[in-house]
Design a protein around this nucleic acid. Structure first.
Lengths: 171, 171
DNA sequence: TATCTTGTACAGTTTAAACTGTACGTAATT
DNA sequence: AATTACGTACAGTTTAAACTGTACAAGATA
């Protein structure tokens, strides 16, 4: 990490990565991506793929795909330094904002989407209502329908709760 | 699912499972566990391992380990029906409560734990402060320390935000 | 223009997770 | 007491994810 490094410092860096990684993984970030992100996060200056590769002891290809993934999630940004040919990357400033937009906003969006999909399912089910009644499986069908209704409410609650979380951070 | 079933109904059940599973997976539930949980959730009566096995098309062993996992997470409960030899299981009532206690409470706990671990790391780092200064890596070491400080605040925020989420549901 | 560098696509490999079938301990049935 | 039924431990298999090395395209350098 950076050019020179010291075994004791590196130990702390590794431990920090290990510890903080657990939290990010908890929220769905892949372990490898988490380690890569934190590596950038705790390094004072932007890093090249080769530097990351050396520090994490993984191939350059892994770093390339990992960085791509982090870029897509908005957790990392590319940085330009004139005179430097290699690509340089750094962790986006402000952990909260990154976290919020990368995870929580995605959850809200996904919750709404899944809810809509369930609504469409319900429409299809209503169309089959007569058939179910004829075949004497109305009980099961109705039960399923009730449950999908609960799922919709659940999704609404998720979306609302996490929206509030976003607002509470903005202020 | 139950004794008799109908292709059309089964199709809806499968689709419901597929759809709702995405949401539960988003919060860290393993795909297999999610499907199993939802199977129980949408079935009007408690199910045996054999019934789950047949419905999901997976081995009985898988069901056994899956159920164990769901029991540990408090998402499923065993149910007694006199005269029935086989173990019967059903999804815990109230999606919210299950969800809250199984996921969010765990997150809060984990966030606090990780924060404590980082605090301990910081103590160790302070002890190495002189060494770092001597070896001219004070800048990197200080930067790392600053970042761990931010991580602690981040963890506090996580814990608080999710605690509020729990409270907002209780009322 | 010819030569190096750098990032990434791709195929192949390693590693880990999910799943299955058999075999056995325990408890119910006869 | 003998037999059957049930759940799960365990070993082995299949499947998917993570990772690597080579090769190549695009851009910089000379």
């Amino acid at each position: 990490m950076d050019k020179t490094n010291h075994p004791k410092l590196e130990e702390f860096q590794t431990k920090t990565i290990h510890e903080f990684s657990k939290t990010l993984e908890m929220f769905g970030l892949a372990p490898g991506d988490a380690r890569l992100f934190i590596t950038l996060y705790i390094n004072p200056s932007p890093m090249t793929l080769d530097e990351m590769s050396e520090f994490l002891g993984k191939s350059k290809t892994s770093m390339s795909t990992g960085i791509r993934s982090l870029l897509d999630q908005g957790l990392v940004e590319r940085v330009w330094v004139k005179g430097v040919r290699k690509d340089l990357y750094q962790a986006n400033e402000e952990l909260y904002r990154s976290f919020l937009s990368s995870f929580i906003e995605n959850w809200v969006q996904a919750a709404n989407e899944h809810k809509n999909n369930i609504s469409h399912l319900q429409m299809d089910m209503r169309e089959s209502h007569r058939t179910f009644h004829k075949e004497n499986i109305a009980e099961q069908a109705n039960y399923l329908y009730e449950r999908t209704e609960e799922m919709k409410i659940f999704h609404e609650w998720i979306a609302e709760a996490f929206c509030n979380l976003i607002d509470s951070q903005k202020k």
